[in-house]
Design a protein around this nucleic acid. Structure first.
Lengths: 204, 204
DNA sequence: TCTTGTATTAAACATTTGTTTAAAACAAAA
DNA sequence: TTTTGTTTTAAACAAATGTTTAATACAAGA
């Protein structure tokens, strides 16, 4: 059946996701992945041609998972402050369910930047969404509701406050000796504190 | 001379720093480092015993470079808001001079968390500094000068806003197609905007 | 100059790793 | 049952990589 094929593919994808996020691209071996998937080594190349190709697919998935929802929020019709709340909520929610996603993307992008920038270059859809948001900001600035800021910097700040704690989890749990559980709760609470914090900083 | 020995050591350290930050621990090879240092491969083991040991030394250096100055700022006698400005300034200044430092530490810590947490565990000096800062916060909260916040979350926010843009540089330059030069200028400006932003968010 | 300890080199070694191969197992169609 | 195409397996291969070795060059002290 074709069902069988899909099932094996999934097993491999899941295993690869696990191993790549844990060890990085270079650190992960095809044998690690095969073992994790409980599958013969040669099957990996049979199903996915090469390690690089397999990683590309994993990366693409992670990427879509994160950015898909974000673009939705950015594109809808609510107020800026609501969009900020929406972005913060989505980012943290996604990362709470998939804490390794951030590391996977960052570790790889810092070594191989093209892997990501290719996904944005020449994407006019994205550009349109950004411009629209910037105009929305400018309007509220003129109305005296918020301080002036570029969309880029605002987005940078949101991303920083939401994503960084996940990237830095090993650091912070080490420095402040928190347990795994506490960290989840902390991030859950931060959904609102971060949004409040940003909005407070923006209020004119 | 002993001078000669130190010189070779330095050549190796510099080369290792360069290669490790660029390719990560696993991605960097001893042959890469030897080539970068323009030195025979076997010299690396002769001088530094093993790849792992060499990395440890590089990591230790990077770590001290970042945290040394930060602890200074945290330990001095200025007001909270001044300390925040001080921290932001120091972090960004260090990373502007050494943009790869952040990636080096984060990439490695996420794969090998013990490497970092070992440096904090049982360090009562650090704990003292943290507690002192927390008390300073609590006092200002009681005086109605600032909103209540834990030192940990405040530190997390500062770190996030300062460090994240360096980690995410490949992402942001890709997404918003900025040049290398622009990015430096942006971060230079952020020294004050970040501090203002944080303080605005904290003001009661 | 001879000796002795250190620095440097080219080559080799043992493992690891991504990938391929050739044979076997399996399933479905004829 | 035989055939045909697909999936799975164990083994092998070639390249890369951390480390060691054994020989040589070098510098300083006797």
């Amino acid at each position: 059946m074709d069902n069988q094929r899909a099932e094996t593919e999934n097993k491999i994808i899941e295993a690869a996701m696990k191993v790549f996020t844990k060890k990085g691209y270079k650190g992960a071996t095809m044998r690690d992945i095969a073992a994790e998937a409980e599958i013969n080594l040669a099957m990996l190349n049979y199903y996915f041609r090469s390690k690089d190709n397999l990683f590309d697919i994993i990366f693409e998935r992670a990427f879509k998972q994160i950015y898909g929802k974000l673009f939705e929020v950015l594109a809808n019709n609510s107020s800026i402050f609501d969009k900020i709340r929406g972005l913060v909520n989505e980012i943290i929610e996604i990362l709470l369910n998939n804490p390794e996603l951030a590391s996977l993307i960052f570790a790889e992008v810092s070594i191989n930047p093209e892997r990501l920038s290719d996904k944005f270059k020449g994407n006019s859809e994205v550009e349109k969404i950004f411009n629209r948001f910037q105009k929305q900001i400018d309007k509220e600035v003129k109305l005296g509701i918020m301080k002036p800021i570029s969309f880029m910097e605002l987005y940078m700040n949101i991303d920083a406050l939401c994503v960084f704690p996940f990237l830095a989890k090993p650091m912070f749990t080490g420095i402040f000796n928190l347990s795994e559980m506490n960290y989840g709760g902390l991030m859950e609470r931060r959904k609102s504190t971060i949004a409040d914090f940003i909005i407070a900083g923006l209020q004119a």
